[in-house]
Design a protein around this nucleic acid. Structure first.
Lengths: 203, 203
DNA sequence: AAGTATTATTTAGGAGTACTAATAATTAAG
DNA sequence: CTTAATTATTAGTACTCCTAAATAATACTT
């Protein structure tokens, strides 16, 4: 029997410390978003709206979809869109198919700002790249599992992840490296290839 | 040579997808903080201040320390403290040693609220516990490395981590499981025992 | 010791976030 | 075809967040 580890009793459980760590990263993301935002004459929220609109189709995006993506109330999202319209970065038109709804689209100026805003979190790149590739892969796999669970618990807006996709066949192959299969592109792939935001996603 | 992996070209680099994932977790943390906060008649920022004060000594905490912990400007921190004073959760007194400074302390009511606020992120526990222990350990190790790098880059307030501690002797032992040594408690420990907030920390 | 920095905090001013609740306009359902 | 549900906006309130300027106390310099 191994010697008792004094840290087992001294320390919080590892899950608790992981949460502390994630909260710290979250603080960093928020404060860096402010820095990027102010440089562009925006706010973090406005930047998030623009980023979200980047992945919208030509039909534009509903207000409710934006509110869900931001995890805020529709009222807050509506405010942010109003500000962006005033700034000329976004247009707001009645939707053709449902005339209660609106279609929100990026203008050309908005697209340019959106591309910049999407790179606000890139300050994390250097930090993430301090991890060796195999640890990155495990880290990403863990992150994917956490996000999936959060979606199940309704703590986070649902996103277009492989693991919830119609085309996703988990562990369809014996290959340890690429056990999963995507029936859309008809190819095997591994945990490190999982997507969190696939445009082709079908629930 | 292995067959080309179509996902290598289709997908963003894994570091980029890790960042996307961390941003999603951050969104969840923010929105859950609102839920917890409103239930207590607070805001997320106020809750963060209370949480921070929990770990302060009897001397209380400086405003500048709170601002640093929140990664906001002193003005914002001062606002939040004022609100908390009005709510009777916090006291603000002149510091005895430096009379420019103030000593901010929790009241009894404040301590009770602080304990609740500290558990706002606990909705993540179930999600983190979906990972097997060994993956949690690697995940935590990666998180620690990322946070350390962010502190070096000044993207995040410095915290009392083992890896920056005077008492920390990394890889002092041959034991693969517990290679590090803490000279304060004079005991070997491993990556899974690393702390992000040690009260005994000495830079 | 006096005068000039520097540091710690507060206030003022302004834009924006965030909530709930109430309202208007459509669409869906019985 | 009328009631119910959905989509978005507005009103009202509290607070966040910034910069810049003001106040006060300590530290450094000559």
């Amino acid at each position: 029997m191994p010697m008792a580890n004094p840290f087992d009793t001294l320390n919080e459980p590892i899950a608790q410390r992981i949460i502390t760590g994630l909260a710290k990263v979250s603080t960093a993301l928020r404060s860096q978003a402010w820095q990027g935002a102010e440089a562009q004459g925006l706010t973090p929220t406005q930047g998030q709206v623009l980023t979200l609109l980047q992945s919208a189709t030509g039909d534009g995006m509903r207000l409710s979809a934006i509110a869900a993506g931001l995890a805020t109330s529709p009222a807050t999202a509506s405010d942010a869109v109003s500000t962006l319209v005033k700034k000329g970065l976004v247009t707001r038109e009645r939707a053709t198919d449902d005339r209660r709804a609106i279609a929100i689209r990026l203008t050309d100026a908005g697209l340019a700002q959106a591309q910049q805003a999407a790179s606000w979190p890139d300050f994390l790149l250097d930090a993430v790249d301090t991890l060796p590739p195999d640890e990155q892969a495990i880290f990403f796999k863990g992150l994917t599992a956490i996000i999936r669970k959060l979606q199940e618990q309704n703590n986070i807006p649902v996103s277009k992840m492989c693991v919830t996709c119609h085309y996703f066949a988990p562990y369809a192959h014996k290959d340890g490296d690429r056990p999963h299969h995507c029936n859309l592109v008809d190819a095997p792939f591994g945990d490190r290839d999982l997507r969190l935001d696939c445009p082709e996603h079908l629930p």
